[in-house]
């Protein structure tokens, strides 16, 4: 009997401990959801009283911040199209064609991508973009993001495509399809879950990135939301918590929406998941 009792208390103890840890990590999220609706929000957690949308009203009057959201969308979608399209075609070619040393190519690219996307290469990137005369353009931001994310995207997708039997395309070609037809009719629909993963990953990466647009852009009307968020800091550098909270919530909505849309439409499957 005592053995059962001790087991019982161990279980309870364990549950309580994990619950406490969970609460600890949930607190910022709860703040994140409550604070925007609280006109007197501070860094401490408080239930909005009264519940109000006045923070949002003020935020919507800040045209710089609103334009930032639009710019973020522009740059993210542009980057995602480049990364998604480029990675799909490149990784398909890498997976299917007998290029000697193709594994090494991918690994070298992967190595470089972590350099390009990181801050270490910001100075040369700035110089290159400056030399191209593309400073303060959306296309510069989009291209630098695409260059940084493509290798990893290719790496993920190539792995995915390697796992798909060639007999799909082979049977299509034997049936009379050209290689291009076989790709679009058969291969692309089969690798779509992998492409979706890459697209979501690239979108989230670009959407949340601060350094690259901050360095490559000059004019305030081109800055994305990640930079524009600093307009909710006072001159002295202290955050205006109420507005910052409201803007942060708006800023994170597109990413949440994308996740929900993708999991509803495709479901998340990283590896395999194809049943013939």
């Amino acid at each position: 009997m005592t053995r059962y009792m001790s087991l019982y208390f161990t279980r309870i103890g364990f549950s309580v401990a994990t619950a406490l840890i969970g609460v600890f990590f949930a607190l910022p999220l709860v703040w994140f959801i409550f604070a925007p609706f609280n006109p007197r929000a501070e860094l401490g957690l408080a239930i909005p009283d009264p519940f109000s949308l006045s923070n949002f009203e003020t935020v919507f009057q800040n045209t710089f911040a609103l334009r930032g959201l639009w710019n973020s969308l522009l740059q993210s979608v542009g980057g995602v199209v480049l990364v998604g399209g480029g990675a799909t075609l490149a990784s398909y070619a890498l997976s299917r064609s007998p290029i000697p040393g193709k594994h090494i190519i991918t690994y070298i690219l992967l190595l470089f991508s972590s350099v390009v996307a990181g801050s270490a290469a910001m100075v040369p990137i700035f110089l290159i973009i400056n030399g191209m005369g593309l400073i303060d353009t959306h296309i510069a931001v989009i291209m630098v993001f695409a260059g940084g994310l493509l290798p990893t995207a290719m790496f993920i997708l190539r792995d995915f495509i390697d796992g798909i039997p060639r007999s799909y395309e082979e049977s299509a070609m034997v049936a009379g399809a050209s290689p291009v037809q076989a790709f679009f009719d058969v291969a692309l629909p089969v690798i779509r879950p992998g492409v979706v993963v890459v697209v979501v990953w690239a979108f989230v990466n670009i959407w949340g990135s601060f350094l690259i647009p901050f360095i490559l852009l000059r004019s305030s009307e081109k800055m994305p939301a990640s930079v524009a968020i600093y307009s909710f800091y006072s001159e002295a550098g202290t955050p205006i918590v109420t507005l910052l909270a409201a803007y942060s919530l708006i800023y994170s909505l597109p990413v949440i929406a994308l996740y929900l849309f993708v999991s509803w439409k495709f479901g998340f499957r990283f590896f395999g998941g194809i049943k013939a």
């Binding site: 007999s167 082979e170 049977s171 034997v174 050209s178 013939a276």
Partner: peptide, 20 residues
């Protein structure tokens, strides 16, 4: 000649049915 021009049919070991 490319497979598509050969006027052939083929049944694959794994059937290669298009899952979508």
């Amino acid at each position: 000649m490319h497979p598509k021009d050969r006027k052939i049919s083929m049944v694959f070991q794994d059937y290669a049915l298009y899952p979508h």
